[in-house]
Amino acid sequence: MSVDIIFKIAAIGIITAVIGQVLKNSGKDDISTLATLAGVVIVLIMVINLIAELFDTIKTVFTF
């Protein structure tokens, strides 16, 4: 568990925002919504994996 995950998520966020803007300005609005959606989904999957890992460690530590 280290800090790089935070940087990864922040980087994904900024990249999706930039890509969305670029695609929107170049006229491809539908693709830009898809791109931002993909970014959100990737980050959601990472967060959910982290939460699952947290709950597993809690279960082992508190001897459920």
Partner: peptide
């Protein structure tokens, strides 16, 4: 994304 980053920070 800001909210997700804060959630991940809490988890870490």
């Amino acid at each position: 994304f800001a909210i997700m980053v804060s959630v991940v920070g809490g988890i870490i």
